[in-house]
Design a protein around this nucleic acid. Structure first.
Length: 431
RNA sequence: GUGGGUAUAGCUCAGCUGGUUAGAGCGCCUGGUUGUGGUCCAGGAGGUCGCGGGUUCGAACCCCGUUACUCACCCCA
């Protein structure tokens, strides 16, 4: 490869990653604030865990048979020879942090974090994507399931999204799932030749996946396959009933989806997904469930857990499609135009900023016309002008760029007060 | 990992069956009297036509390779 080709590649973000640029990021800030607000209402505190962990954490917690861990992890060896991995999902790290700090349960945490999976990018799928999510540890009460789902729905609704579907299922637990899996495997082996090529060989390794397959052949087999929902033990059945009852009581609509399964091994009992219809296909905006065995698997005391993760990029994609949550990028309130030597602009923006007013200015000796052009494009509400006349008179000219061409001249020392009185909020975008 | 589509100016794209100095819109810069943006007018800057090789008198255009982007499958937020 030539040096030129190399340098061009260095100018690109790595495959499947994207830069979040100023302008677009205002929308992210608003989304995170929205999620943080709802999470706080439900009693969650922010948690931040490392971007990478010992690879064994994920292998043991998430499961080596899963695609996410088996084929899609970003693994690397650090300089000390330790096998590490960029986190491919959010839950394992939170549980690890919980076990390390040992706070008294119940433990509730929310997070916003980049997630890494080595896969081919496409619409709504990236090698680095970002999730907001929550985890609750230490409560097995089905009411927590209802609360977690309530938070998820509140968050999406708060963004203005509508028309998404909450899908719900129960995966059973250690008492009933093993028996069910045996029954399912037996059934699938009986119909082995009807399954699609991809799944025919997965019967013993990951039978649940087959229920999720969309091909005609698998679908027709799975329709009459035994379902977990019908094989739940009494405890699981009761739990699930309380969850659906709670959702109904809370006015949260959901769809019972007996074929819903999850790609990660640790889920038990309640599992769910929020999907969004994109016209030609569905997008999963949020997914999660209960994982009552995970803490133990990772070496901790028996501790129930539940949580979800929601892909920020996907949620924003859905917002785009519905034309909601369209947050304009931030503009300054005032733009200082200085056609003298710039000293007045230097002092004025400093004064305005100290007074809490977002201020920008022009640099270099550009013409008044071009500075005004820049002021307009900046989206500023006011232009504050310092020219020879103002400099001599100790005044400033203030022009309302978004109103009816009002322009006044006031003494310089009153500029801050004048602007403060009139600029509670910046105008949205440039006109 | 598999398959399809695409790659021309900062952005969105035209470039007829290969034929002179590669175009448009938007954006950007400058000007249209004296200190004023958002409309209008004039001018200007800006391109290794993704990269490498081949065919040809001649390639943005045809062929091969390669990289990236994109969509889909697997899987997933």
């Amino acid at each position: 490869m030539s040096d030129e080709a190399v340098s061009l590649e260095l100018l690109r973000a790595p495959v499947g990653t994207h830069d979040l640029m100023p302008g677009e990021s205002d929308r992210w800030i608003a989304l995170l604030a929205m999620f943080a607000r709802h999470a706080q209402l439900y009693g969650y505190g922010l948690i931040q865990t490392p971007l990478f962990e010992d690879v064994r954490l994920f292998k043991r917690g998430v499961g080596t048979e899963t695609e996410v861990v088996g084929k899609e992890m970003y693994e690397f060896e650090d300089r000390g020879g330790r096998a590490m991995a960029l986190r491919p999902e959010g839950t394992a790290s939170v549980v690890r942090a919980f076990l390390q700090a040992r706070p008294t349960p119940p433990f509730r945490a929310w997070y916003a974090a980049p997630i890494f999976r080595y896969e081919r990018p496409q619409a709504g799928r990236y090698r680095q994507h970002h999730q907001v999510g929550v985890e609750v540890l230490g409560i097995s009460d089905p009411d927590v399931d209802v609360e977690v789902l309530g938070l998820a729905i509140d968050y999406l609704t708060g963004l203005g999204l509508q028309g998404f579907t909450l899908r719900l299922n129960s995966l059973g637990d250690g008492a009933c799932r093993p028996q069910y899996l045996e029954a399912l495997k037996a059934y699938l082996h009986d119909h082995e030749r009807e399954l699609c090529d991809v799944h025919a060989e997965k019967i013993d390794r990951n039978p649940l996946r087959i229920l999720d397959c969309k091909t005609e052949s698998c679908r027709s087999v799975s329709v009459s396959a035994p379902s977990m929902a019908d094989a739940l033990c009494d405890d699981c059945a009761t739990h699930f009933e309380r969850v659906t009852e709670g959702l109904e009581a809370g006015g949260i609509s959901f769809l019972l989806d007996k074929r819903l399964v999850r790609g990660l091994d640790y889920y038990t009992r309640t599992c769910f997904e929020v999907t969004f219809d994109l016209g030609d296909g569905e997008l999963t905006l949020l997914a999660g469930g209960r994982y009552d065995g995970l803490v133990e698997v990772l070496g901790g005391p028996p501790t129930p857990g539940i949580g979800f993760g929601s892909g920020i990029e996907r949620v924003l994609l859905a917002c785009d499609q519905q034309g909601v949550f369209d947050i304009p990028s931030k503009s300054p309130v005032v733009y200082v135009v200085d056609t003298t030597d710039g000293r007045a602009a230097r002092d004025l923006v400093a004064e305005f900023r100290a007074g809490g007013i977002e201020a920008e200015r022009g640099y270099g000796n550009r013409s008044m016309k071009s500075q005004f052009k820049t002021a307009d494009r900046s989206g500023a509400r006011f232009a504050v002008v310092i020219g020879e006349r103002e400099l001599e008179a100790g005044t400033v000219t203030i022009r309302d760029l978004r109103g009816d061409d009002e322009q006044i001249v006031i003494v310089r020392s009153e500029a801050l007060k004048y602007l403060s009185d009139r600029s509670i909020t910046a105008p949205e975008g440039s006109s």
